[in-house]
Design a protein around this nucleic acid. Structure first.
Length: 443
RNA sequence: CGGGGCGUAGCGCAGCCUGGUAGCGCAACAGUUUUGGGAACUGUAGGUCGUUGGUUCAAAUCCAAUCGCCCCGACCA
């Protein structure tokens, strides 16, 4: 992409509406624009990051054997009246009435809808286990939206639902999700700690939240610091292997890690030696639940078991806050110059800075590198504006491009271009002819 | 929903107390000189001062209502 042809409305000054770092940087980098409190437009750069995250989430879900579908944002009120949540959910639910005076709502979550889909099509235990998920915009009319996309009213969320014939099977589904989430967050570059959680309005009796430590987080968490050394690794997991999944879950949920909702100070002192006791703020980026037959019973989600009896299915639900993750990643990766995207979610992996647009050789070399990287699918961002070098460096750093290639007459005299790592800030000189192959190795 | 703050050009702000020609910086546009860490100069364009009503000869400024945004709390991916 040529910057002169791109839409990147960066701001030199921070709009007064922003308070926390990620929100400020997202506005300054031209990623989002607020439409109204808690509701945002995603500009091209922001959308790229959002879609990169979405892509990783989808890949890891499918790898674990979960099936994508897409449910609508607007749902009939009647379904929620059936489950009993229409009145329970309260003011947070955005209620709508259509021209026929039918009561509708903008979905804050999808348990009712998915259960209805399930019960109208799945009749036999032989069709289980089944896990369906989608990534769709949700709306929760929060009393007080804040922190940009971290607590918006409209937000993009991956939500998944598992259906199993027995509790044991459902626990395996739970474990499978926990493991796939560990892998997902690791690919996003994040250290997300599974913590024992409260089940809240979703209900049920078994739940973990995934939290990313950050000063600006809304939760207070208490944990054994040794869990920070855990690495999931890229190891291939057999998600059908009950024992293997259970082992990983046991390992990751053994250390004390709880949010303020479930924190037990006595147990904390008893189980975790003083020097390993960690207390921090954290951002919640996902949660998984097992809730048994809470929805399947009232919604009539029954299947015929092997003995011919009608039994309600055991269910669980699982969510990842996709749009919130954009903010959470920035909270985890930034410095005073701007964002430092992990390579896996970066909107562009490589930036090319032409330091002197008036210099013919510089332009030729830039064009050559640009076209070679473009044809090999590396999606570089080429800053071809008539700006001074300093301004271009500042922009690349602000928007967080992991690798920057600097091309100018000064280097070309020596036959080199400069390669700068956004994360370490280190630069090295690379012979002009080697830069493209080196980038391929690095990204 | 309780408490507080703020709405003036795309962004950041001053002007309001003490009513009388709407201003500054950045961004934008044109030109010239520049060209490796947010360039300089000259010029240009951009505003029904959130909205409505009131007071007044006269309202960005005073009064009232209303809408919106932000912060602190109680609730939440």
């Amino acid at each position: 992409m040529r910057l002169t042809r791109y839409f990147l409305p960066v701001l030199r000054e921070v709009p007064a509406e922003a308070q926390i770092t990620s929100h400020k940087l997202m506005l300054r980098a031209g990623m989002i624009k607020q439409a109204v409190s808690g509701i945002y437009s995603w500009m091209p750069l922001g959308l790229k990051v959002l879609q990169n995250i979405e892509g990783i989430v989808i890949e890891e879900q499918e790898r674990a054997g979960h099936l994508p579908l897409l449910m609508p944002t607007i749902q009939p009120a009647s379904l929620w009246q059936k489950s009993g949540r229409y009145d329970d959910y309260g003011e947070e639910m955005l209620r709508i009435r259509d021209r026929h005076n039918r009561d509708l709502l903008y979905g804050p979550t999808n348990e009712e809808l998915i259960t209805e889909i399930f019960s109208s099509h799945v009749k036999s235990y032989r069709d289980l286990p089944l896990t369906l998920f989608h990534i769709q915009w949700k709306f929760r009319d929060e009393m007080r939206p804040r922190f940009g996309v971290m607590r918006g009213r409209e937000f993009l969320m991956k939500d998944g639902y598992n259906f199993d014939i027995t509790m044991d099977d459902a626990i395996h589904s739970y474990n499978r999700h926990l493991v796939s989430y560990l892998k997902t967050y690791e690919r996003l570059g994040l250290k997300a700690i599974p913590m024992r959680a409260d089940t809240g309005p979703i209900g049920g009796n078994y739940s973990h939240e995934f939290l990313v430590l950050a000063d600006t987080g809304e939760s207070e968490v208490f944990f054994d610091k040794r869990i920070l050394d855990f690495n999931f690794g890229i190891a291939n997991v057999n998600f059908d292997d009950i024992g293997e999944c259970q082992k990983i879950v046991d390992e990751w949920t053994a250390p004390y890690a709880r949010t303020d909702e479930t924190h037990d100070p006595e147990a904390f002192d008893r189980v975790v030696p003083k020097e390993f006791q960690g207390v921090s703020r954290a951002i919640e980026v996902g949660q998984i639940f097992y809730f048994g037959t809470k929805y399947s019973k009232p919604m009539g989600a029954h299947v015929t078991d092997s003995e011919g009896k009608q039994v309600p299915v055991h269910m669980g639900s699982h969510g990842i806050g996709v749009s919130r993750l954009v903010g959470a990643i920035i909270e985890a990766f930034h410095d005073d110059k701007g964002i430092k995207w992990p390579i896996s979610v970066a909107p562009f992996k490589v930036g090319i800075v032409n330091t002197v647009m008036g210099d013919q050789e510089t332009c030729e070399v830039c064009e050559k590198i640009y076209s070679e990287l473009t044809t090999t699918n590396f999606s570089p961002l080429y800053d071809d504006r008539e700006e001074r070098a300093g301004s271009k460096f500042t922009t690349m750093e602000l928007i967080g491009i992991p690798w920057r290639i600097t091309v100018g007459p000064r280097g070309l005299k020596k036959g080199i271009v400069e390669l700068t790592d956004r994360h370490s800030g280190e630069s090295r000189e690379i012979p002009t002819d080697n830069i493209v192959s080196l980038i391929k190795e690095l990204t």
